[in-house]
Computed example of a mutant assay.
Amino acid sequence: MSGSPPELPIVVLDALMPVSQRLVLNRRGSSVWDVEGDRGRYAVKVGYPVEATSEWPAQPWTALAPAREGAVLHRLGADDIAYREWERGTWNIQPWREGPDLYRLWEPCRTEGSSVELHTSVALGCVEALAELHAKGWAHGDVQPAHFIIGPERTYLIDLALARGGHVPEGYDFPFRGCLVHYEAPEIARSVLATGEAEPTQEADIYALGASLLISATGWRAVEYPDEAPRPVQREAVASGKRRPVKATGELGELIDAMLSHAPEDRPTIHEVGKALS
């Protein structure tokens, strides 16, 4: 259970003077709010530590994640960003990105017997958003369908709390211990299993993008393992490289297969993926 989310910190309320606020997401260690005020519409992320239970260990890093993301966004030159500490952790404010995520947008394509075609323009928008980050020398580290917001004019890549590629203030930094295993590259899974940590790379982002496109188009994960399997069991399956015999239709399917190559050096670069889709 996630429990009740904390209220928005007073300093955030003072900064935004909201006329409306809506809880969008409440999970262990963080909550996300859609806040609208005189200054505009913002996403507010609030982080706090996760206490240990019989099911999972303590996770103090969740308290630092909003400030780390704020620092990353600042390093990337984003405007209208604020991040600070509060009594239980950190928070950040960033512009709200309106639109469905990739998985929700492609839902009609996954309906049995559907004649809805996959639009490569949507995939290309995701590629361009990731390419923009890679061009600045960063790896995202947590690429997944929910982090691509398909806006009316462009696609946004959100949730950069785990990104690597430049300086982050030491007080807000923490080791990368993997991401959602559905989208974790084999080499990341192996490193986390062996050492408890890994280093996000652009090659791993490519794998994650391929896995994101595949599950959004077909509803199937790239690698097969029981839904309720413990994280180490999931990672063992990913590390083995045993792929499901699932393929998206057409040329996009062939491209996704290349992106999901077991060896990082066999995957196309983001530039090559964009060129193929164009």
Results as ranks from 00 to 15, higher is better:
residue 39 R to K: 08
residue 39 R to G: 02
residue 41 R to H: 02
residue 42 Y to I: 01
residue 42 Y to M: 02
residue 43 A to K: 02
residue 43 A to Q: 06
residue 43 A to V: 00
residue 44 V to F: 08
residue 44 V to W: 10
residue 44 V to D: 12
residue 45 K to A: 00
residue 45 K to D: 01
residue 45 K to R: 05
residue 45 K to T: 14
residue 46 V to P: 03
residue 46 V to Y: 03
residue 47 G to P: 01
residue 47 G to Q: 02
residue 48 Y to E: 01
residue 48 Y to K: 01
residue 48 Y to H: 02
residue 49 P to Q: 00
residue 49 P to R: 05
residue 51 E to V: 03
residue 51 E to D: 02
residue 51 E to A: 13
residue 51 E to G: 05
residue 51 E to S: 09
residue 52 A to D: 01
residue 52 A to Y: 09
residue 52 A to E: 11
residue 53 T to Q: 01
residue 53 T to Y: 04
residue 54 S to L: 00
residue 54 S to E: 13
residue 54 S to Q: 11
residue 54 S to R: 06
residue 55 E to A: 09
residue 55 E to D: 11
residue 55 E to I: 01
residue 55 E to R: 02
residue 55 E to N: 01
residue 56 W to C: 06
residue 56 W to N: 00
residue 57 P to D: 09
residue 57 P to I: 08
residue 57 P to M: 03
residue 58 A to R: 05
residue 59 Q to D: 02
residue 59 Q to I: 00
residue 59 Q to K: 04
residue 61 W to M: 07
residue 61 W to D: 08
residue 65 A to V: 11
residue 65 A to Y: 03
residue 65 A to N: 03
residue 66 P to C: 05
residue 66 P to W: 08
residue 66 P to F: 00
residue 66 P to R: 02
residue 67 A to C: 08
residue 67 A to W: 04
residue 67 A to I: 12
residue 67 A to F: 13
residue 68 R to V: 06
residue 69 E to V: 01
residue 69 E to S: 00
residue 69 E to T: 05
residue 70 G to T: 04
residue 71 A to D: 11
residue 72 V to M: 10
residue 72 V to K: 10
residue 72 V to L: 10
residue 73 L to M: 11
residue 73 L to R: 07
residue 73 L to D: 08
residue 74 H to N: 10
residue 75 R to F: 02
residue 75 R to I: 10
residue 75 R to W: 04
residue 78 A to H: 12
residue 78 A to Q: 08
residue 78 A to E: 09
residue 79 D to S: 14
residue 79 D to G: 10
residue 80 D to R: 11
residue 81 I to P: 10
residue 84 R to W: 05
residue 84 R to P: 04
residue 85 E to A: 11
residue 85 E to T: 12
residue 86 W to C: 04
residue 86 W to T: 08
residue 86 W to P: 15
residue 87 E to A: 03
residue 87 E to P: 15
residue 87 E to W: 14
residue 89 G to Y: 08
residue 89 G to M: 12
residue 89 G to Q: 05
residue 89 G to R: 13
residue 90 T to D: 09
residue 90 T to L: 07
residue 90 T to M: 08
residue 91 W to A: 15
residue 91 W to H: 06
residue 92 N to S: 14
residue 92 N to D: 08
residue 92 N to F: 13
residue 93 I to Q: 09
residue 94 Q to M: 13
residue 94 Q to A: 13
residue 95 P to K: 07
residue 96 W to V: 07
residue 96 W to P: 12
residue 96 W to Y: 14
residue 97 R to A: 12
residue 97 R to K: 06
residue 98 E to Y: 09
residue 99 G to L: 08
residue 99 G to M: 07
residue 99 G to W: 04
residue 100 P to S: 08
residue 100 P to T: 15
residue 101 D to P: 06
residue 101 D to K: 13
residue 101 D to Y: 11
residue 102 L to A: 09
residue 102 L to H: 07
residue 102 L to T: 12
residue 102 L to N: 12
residue 102 L to Q: 13
residue 104 R to C: 08
residue 105 L to Q: 06
residue 106 W to S: 10
residue 106 W to M: 15
residue 106 W to A: 14
